[in-house]
Every structure is written in C-alpha cells, then in structure tokens.
Design a protein around this nucleic acid. Structure first.
Lengths: 230, 230
DNA sequence: ACCTGAACACCGTTCAAGT
DNA sequence: ACCTGAACACCGTTCAAGT
C-alpha cells in the first residue's frame, strides 16, 4: 500500500506515481470539467499530488500536453463499418456520424484537437478506412476518393467547430440572428431577409442533428453525381 | 506635432493616443507578424508606447481584444456577387472562394476567428447575401437554402482550419502520410492502402487550391441534386 | 532515474492616485 | 475622462540539489 503523504526523491521500482498516460488522463479530466483555460501545469501537478516540475520528466512542455490530449481524443475514435450490407452512402454516413460524436465527446478540447495537424493526420491514417471503403464502392477514381474524403472531413470539422463554440457560449443564437436580419436595411440583403422571414422564428431554431444530416445528404448526393460523371 | 516622449495624465482634447480601433489594429499586426501567443496585454501596450493599464479603458479585458480581432477580420470580408450574369453554381463558388481568401489573410488568427460564435454569426448576417442569392436561384426551398448555406460555410471553415494549421507547422504532411500508410499492417486498412498506393507520392502532394475546388464542385453537385428532388 | 524547492522572467488584472 | 505605477496572484520553465 502506498502512503498518501508527500515523499520526495526517486520512488521504488514499480511505484512510480507518474506516467505520460496518467498525466494526460488527469489533464483531460480538468479540461472536460473546467475548460481549457483551467489546465495549467501547476494545477495539473496539484491534482496528481506532485511537484509541478515532475511533469517535465514525462512531457517536455505544456504544448506537448495539449498535443497529447488531441492524440488521446483521436485514439478513442472508432468508426463503425456496416460494410456491404448497406448502400455505400449509408456506410459513409454511419462513419461520419460516429466521427462527429467522437469529436463532440470533449467539446472543450474541440478547438485544440481540430487545430492539431499531426493528430488529424494520425486519425486519417489509422481510422479513416470506412470512409475510403464506402467511397471506393461508390465507384470513384482514387483521386476522387481522396478528394471526397477530405471534403467530408473538412465539413465535419467545420460543423463540430461551430457546434462546440455555440455550446461554450450561453446566448441563444437563433432568435438573436432573426432579429438582427430583420433589422437590416431592406436593400442591404434582400434575399437573406426574405429567406429568414419565410423560415420564421421556429423554423430558424437550429437543430444541430438535422443540420448535420442535411450536410451529409448534400455531400453524398454530390459524390454520387461525381461518380456518374467519371 | 505630438511629442514622442512619455507623458502622463489625461491628454488634451483630440490628442488621445488610444482608441479601441487603434489598439485592435496594433494587436492584429502583432498576431500577423509573430503569432497569437505573442499577443499579450503588456506587449501590446509597449508597441503603442502606453502603460499596459491604459488598454483597459478601451477594452474590458484580453478576451475582448481577441473577440475584437475576430470582428475585424470578418468586417474586412466582402463577397463579390457576379449576379445573374453567371449560372448560380458559379455565383456560389465565386463567393465561397472570396470567403476562403478573406479568412486566409490572417492565418495566425484563423482558429480564434472560427471559434468566435458571435463573429461568425455577425458575418452570416451581414455578408452572406451572395450565398443566399445563388441558392435561391438554384430553386431550393427556404429551409434547404438555409441548410445548404450552413453546410457550405462549415466546409469552408473546416478547410481553412486545416490549411491554417498546416501552414503553422513546418513538417511536410504528404510524404509523411504516404510512408505511414504503407507501414500499416496490410489487413488493417486495405482500401486506404490501395487508394494511397494508386495515387502515389506525387499524386498525394496535396494542393490546397484544387482540394478546395473539388469540395466546391461536390457541394454544388449535391445542391443541384437537392433542388431537382424537391 | 525520478522527484523536489527555489528562483526567473513573465502573465492578466485591481486599485488608488495623478492630471 | 483618460493614463499611470505599484502591487497581487498567478503563469511556464530552468537549474541545482536531493534520493
């Protein structure tokens, strides 16, 4: 049994208090619970009951902690692949939905994750197989498959970014938007005004789930057209 | 003529050294030149030759400075509208390209800008008219117009995010990616391996411009299909 | 090897005081 | 009203010292 009291110096073999993984898990918890700004090296060390400087034996600096968190989130992603039992567009949509859900699991980290190039490129390598399989079944050329996969990923990233940002705020977007569009001088944006007016306040109450589905349908329809055109 | 030396106390009328706008312009310059981390209140004050605390008379805190920068970037956006002289999909693509170029003008700020909900919703209100006009001409219902515009914006945001992140890094994505895909165990991601292999190293050398065009084409094709289906 | 304590060079922001 | 100086409560990180 390990004492709870503070010790110093090197721990005995097999008794290490710290590891890269343990540090990252603690960091993820802080970010999930209190937001990205709450994550400081000193705070992180405190929750691990350890001297702030001990962290630097496992991770070179704070940037490495943040990169490690992005990696952790992507490592937790698993895209289901229904395979040939469903049409290729359903296969694609299933994987896309799972990708969105996986990113949304840590909303306070979304920005960090999406901006981390190496994390993103890692997930492309390891996890994107279902995307490529579905697009291959659609009958695209290799180049078109590559482009379509990137387009789909970009859409999901942009969508997730908006979703995470709104969730972090308190104010209601939809009513505010409606009021401001209506307040515009009528010659400024006539079509926008008309469309928003026809939608009405209730129609504008933005539902993220149906917005995501609409995007997926547009993209799969566009991909299908691309396949026919080859 | 205003002396260069430091003064203290209230300046005479019309001689104010500081304004919200002047502060934001100086801040934008720092971010463009040296990155977002270089922007500190103290550094900002120094470049304005002013006491750090003076800034707080014009902006309540650092978060307000960052939000102001997002606002500034979006305020500089102007989407051209070729109007009825071109097909609706060209009209849509023209506006989309301009939107991307506008965001890319300040790559170090991309993350901040895209994550700022109120800035994004502002630009939707003021600037998105060409998007709505083109989609209206495509023959979509109001709801489909709204959804298609959001999908297109999400794609551009996700694309810009990737573009800005890669630009901020030094390492070459494409060759690295190719090597790592080939290093995967062959049963792990067979389709991905095959597609990347067929593309080859040169084919994978990702060109952002053509990637963006491919996305736009897929989206407009999907929107056209949506319009026919109504 | 791993952990610690003290120290350095910074931060954002509050507050009271100047003009 | 606008700017300042000193101070407070933090940061991330280096370095030398402990075991």
């Amino acid at each position: 049994m390990v004492s709870d009291g503070k010790r110093s110096g090197r721990p005995r073999a097999g008794e290490e208090r710290l590891s890269r993984e343990a540090i990252l898990i603690a960091a993820l918890r802080i970010v999930d619970d209190e937001g990205i700004d709450a994550l400081t090296m000193r705070r992180l060390a405190a929750t691990l009951k350890v001297n702030p400087m001990s962290l630097y034996h496992h991770l070179p600096n704070k940037a490495a902690v943040l990169a490690g968190l992005a990696e952790l989130v992507f490592a937790g992603l698993e895209l289901p692949d229904p395979g040939d039992t469903v049409p290729w567009d359903d296969q694609l949509k299933t994987a896309a939905r799972a990708y969105r859900v996986g990113l949304r699991r840590h909303p306070n980290l979304a920005l960090q994750v999406l901006a981390d190039t190496s994390a993103v490129s890692n997930v492309v390598v390891v996890t994107m197989e279902p995307f490529y399989r579905a697009l291959d079944r659609a009958g695209l050329t290799p180049r078109k498959i590559f482009e379509a996969a990137n387009t789909l990923i970009d859409f999901i990233h942009g969508f997730t970014l908006g979703e995470a940002s709104v969730r972090a705020e308190t104010f209601e977007l939809a009513p505010d938007l409606l009021a401001r569009v209506q307040a515009l001088p009528s010659e400024k944006a006539p079509t926008l005004r008309r469309i928003v007016g026809e939608l009405g306040a209730t129609g504008l109450a933005y539902d993220f789930d149906s917005g995501f589905e609409a995007g997926l349908s547009t993209l799969t329809a566009g991909i299908a057209a691309t396949a026919r055109a080859r």
